[in-house]
Computed example of a mutant assay.
Amino acid sequence: MLRAETAASPDRQAAALAGLRAYQQASRGRPQRRAPARFRKGRARLRDYGHKGGGRRPLILVPSLINPPGILDLTPDVSLLRWLAAQGFHPYLLDWGSPTPADRAMDVTGHVEQLLLPLIARLGEPPVLVGYCLGGTMALAAACAAPVAGLALIAGPWRFDGFGDAARADIARLWAAAGPVCETMGAVPMEVLQSGFWRLDPQRTIAKYEAFAAMEPGSRGAQLFVAMEDWANAGAPLTYAAGRQLFEEFIAGDVTGSGAWRVGGVLADPAALSCPAIDFVSLSDRIVPAESAADLPDRRDLGAGHVGMIVGRGGRAQLWEPLAHWIGALPRST
C-alpha cells in the first residue's frame, strides 16, 4: 500500500517509513491498569470503574468486538470511563475477552444473547447502555430485548447500506479472499480487519506516520499517538461466526437496516425502543459513515472523527459533556 500510494514521492515514502520505525521503537512505559472485574459471564467481564458520589445510576459501556475495549480508558487522563466516574455515575466497561475454540460458532447475535443480556441482568437496576461503534449496534439490539434505563449510541452503524456500494464491494472482496482461511482457523484475526480499515483511507494511514516522524520523541502528542496506534493494531480475533455474520449479513445484507435482525426473541428495531435514546454521529467518520446511523429522533451530529470523539482534543466538549448531561437528565427508574 505504501509503495502504491507514494510511487511518485520517494520523500513521502521515506518519511512514512521513518515514522513507522519511530513508532515501533517508542518507549511504552507501564501498561494502563485495568479496572477490576465485578461480574462475569463466560469470557466476558464487566469491569467496575466505581463512582464519586452516591446513588448515581449504573452505566454499561459496550465497545466493539473489533479492537480492545481500552480506547474508552486509553490513559489515566484520556479516559471516558474515569471521567464519567468522576461525574458521579457508576460506569462499567464490558470486556468481551478473548474467544476460545469453543466459541467458534458464537456470532454477533450470540454475543448479545449469551454475554451482554445476562450481564445486564446481573445489575441491581436497569442500566444505561452506551455503545461505541459495533458495540452500539449490539447495545441497540440489547435495549430491544431487555429493560434498560436509556441507550446512547456513539458512532454506531445500523443501516449498513449507508457504507456505500464501493466500500461494501471492497469489503466483500476482502472477505472473499480471507473467509476460507478464517473458516479453517475458526477465527478472524485482527490483521484481516485492520487491512480493511487501511483500505478505507490509505492516504490518511500513510500521512499519520509521516506526521509522527516529525514529532518530538516522548512528547505528549507522541505518547498519545503510540497509545492509539497500539490500540488500533491490537485486539483478540473475532470468532469465525461473528466475522461471517458481520461481513455477510450486516455489511453485505444490511440485516439490521432492513429490520430483519432478531435478538433475544424480538426484532431489533430502533422504532420499537421503549427507553430514551440518543445517537451521537460523526460527520467526518471514515470508518462508520454518518449515512449508516440509526437516525434516532434525538441525533447529535459531531465534527470529531470516529476515534477523535473518544480521545481527541475536542472529544470532551463535543461528546463527553453532552453525553453526561443527557444521562444525568434521564428519569430515575423505580
Score class of each variant (00 low, 15 high):
residue 187 A to S: 13
residue 187 A to E: 15
residue 188 V to A: 04
residue 190 M to A: 14
residue 191 E to R: 14
residue 191 E to A: 15
residue 192 V to P: 04
residue 193 L to D: 00
residue 194 Q to I: 03
residue 194 Q to S: 07
residue 196 G to E: 09
residue 199 R to S: 10
residue 200 L to I: 04
residue 203 Q to W: 11
residue 203 Q to H: 10
residue 204 R to M: 05
residue 205 T to R: 15
residue 206 I to K: 07
residue 206 I to Y: 07
residue 210 E to T: 01
residue 211 A to E: 13
residue 213 A to T: 00
residue 215 M to W: 05
residue 216 E to K: 15
residue 217 P to I: 08
residue 218 G to F: 00
residue 225 F to S: 05
residue 226 V to I: 06
residue 226 V to A: 02
residue 230 D to T: 10
residue 230 D to L: 12
residue 233 N to L: 15
residue 233 N to K: 11
residue 236 A to E: 11
residue 237 P to D: 08
residue 240 Y to W: 14
residue 241 A to G: 09
residue 247 F to H: 11
residue 247 F to R: 06
residue 249 E to C: 04
residue 250 F to N: 03
residue 252 A to I: 07
residue 257 G to I: 09
residue 259 G to L: 11
residue 261 W to S: 01
residue 263 V to K: 02
residue 263 V to G: 02
residue 263 V to C: 09
residue 266 V to K: 11
residue 267 L to R: 12
residue 270 P to T: 05
residue 274 S to M: 03
residue 274 S to E: 13
residue 275 C to L: 09
residue 276 P to A: 03
residue 278 I to S: 07
residue 278 I to R: 15
residue 278 I to W: 07
residue 278 I to L: 14
residue 278 I to P: 09
residue 279 D to I: 06
residue 279 D to C: 11
residue 282 S to T: 03
residue 284 S to G: 02
residue 288 V to G: 04
residue 290 A to W: 02
residue 292 S to I: 02
residue 293 A to Q: 05
residue 297 P to A: 13
residue 297 P to D: 12
residue 298 D to F: 02
residue 299 R to I: 07
residue 299 R to T: 14
residue 301 D to A: 14
residue 301 D to Y: 13
